[in-house]
Design a protein around this nucleic acid. Structure first.
Lengths: 251, 251
DNA sequence: ACCTGAACACCGTTCAAGT
DNA sequence: ACCTGAACACCGTTCAAGT
């Protein structure tokens, strides 16, 4: 099923599909070529090389995050919405966080998101270095949460039996193996027992929410401390976009 | 310079050295074999496969983090020390965070660290789910900060000229290229201009410190809200270790 | 018990050649 | 302008064979 002619958008989209389905290790130029009905080397003309393709894909998914207007909903609600929507995105694309830790990803998808984040925390009343730091704190927590998700995805993928020779069962899965290690530590065992029978999806959501609210509390406290405190209610802040231009580097 | 005989510790250490020097993409079984003076396939007997080797290496470096006693220094100081020392570790081993996002890493290095974290936040007065969540919030921020560092390392590694055909210079480096994108956004440009001429190392440190303190503030606020608030001063909590055993899975 | 060497099925990438 | 095919230098891993 070869298309009329290949183009960059199509290749990047196919790469994202492959990444979503098989993870970062599942992406290969040859597989991509097969999927697009082209020679394994056909994509080089359009995207230069594999690294650049991953960068393009990563920047594209950064662009999927919605930009709530702090002037409409208030800064705290906007900040909350931003981080929750971003989290939903990293769950759709668990390879993203691995990609950004390996390749240097920067483009209009990420830059636009950052700019909007600045708008939100500016509306909160942060200025100067505090503004950078506030944005960074929320963003850093988000990146960490994405790692959590990636770990969970890796756990699911893992079919390894890590202790073939270890005393006892010969084919236990990773989870029971990890649980076995954790239960040698008193506090970890206690928490594991307490968590038994919980709905994991619900637990993950509440954990994330707790972190977000704790951070927003902490940021509000800093805001109050520096005196520049602003209302949680909407304030008038415009959020103009970039001055257009090609969102992807040409080659 | 072939050793007497290979062993697992030696192989894991050589892998860590290679990873520190060349990053996760620089590790190959063949290179490792060359470095150890053995056949490329000699390590399989000791570590099973490459994935397991990376897991072993990752768990080992988790174990490098010091465990401050909250009973001695107070929970907040202990929490602070823990996260700062962990951050120093991720700077020594920037590949770690990529490794954990790709492979499922769990072992006594990480488990011991987690258990100690629980001890610290338990000393603060957290119990039940709040305890899980508090530990998780700090840990998540740490993971995010490690990503930040990995991004910086990736940026340094990147020697790509991403816009050969783009109007203007033909061989600009990634940083000026990224700056070019960012400066199309009003708020990003403003902050970039304000940050010009800052010492990057000092800026990174202050950014991290701000995040840590904001989170600890937020956690203290939650603690006060639930009524179970505990003093910041030392409280008596023992911190017994695991009941011994082999820290690495045998094969 | 520990290691080697050959072999297999993969990779990313370059480049001359085609249309 | 866009794509193919062959080729090159790599990979991880298995496995029979050696000691």
């Amino acid at each position: 099923m070869p298309r009329e002619t290949l183009n960059r958008d199509q290749i990047v989209q196919a790469a994202i599909d492959l990444l979503d389905a098989e993870g970062i290790e599942g992406l290969s130029m040859r597989k991509l070529g097969r999927q697009l009905g082209s020679a394994p080397t056909a994509m080089y003309w359009h995207v230069g090389n594999k690294e650049n393709l991953v960068v393009l894909a990563a920047d594209r998914v950064w662009g999927e995050i919605e930009r709530p207007d702090p002037a409409e909903v208030g800064w705290r609600a906007a900040a909350r919405a931003l981080v929750h929507d971003a989290h939903a995105m990293t769950l759709r694309h668990p390879w993203l966080i691995t990609a950004v830790s390996t390749h240097f990803v920067y483009g209009h998808g990420l830059a636009g998101l950052q700019d909007h984040s600045y708008a939100v925390y500016e509306a909160a009343g942060f200025t100067g270095p505090d503004l950078d730091w506030a944005v960074n704190t929320a963003f850093t927590f988000l990146a960490g949460a994405a790692i959590d998700d990636a770990v969970k995805a890796a756990m699911v993928r893992a079919r390894i039996r890590p202790g073939r020779g270890e005393e006892g069962s010969a084919e236990e899965d990773v989870v029971t193996w990890a649980t076995g290690i954790a239960s040698r530590y008193p506090r970890l065992r206690a928490r594991l027992e307490a968590q038994a029978g919980e709905d994991p999806a619900r637990a993950a959501r509440r954990k994330f929410e707790f972190g977000v609210e704790a951070i927003l509390d902490g940021l509000e406290a800093r805001l109050a401390a520096t005196g520049t405190a602003a209302a949680t209610a909407p304030s008038a802040t415009t959020a103009p976009g970039p001055d257009g231009g090609d969102p992807r580097p040409r080659h």
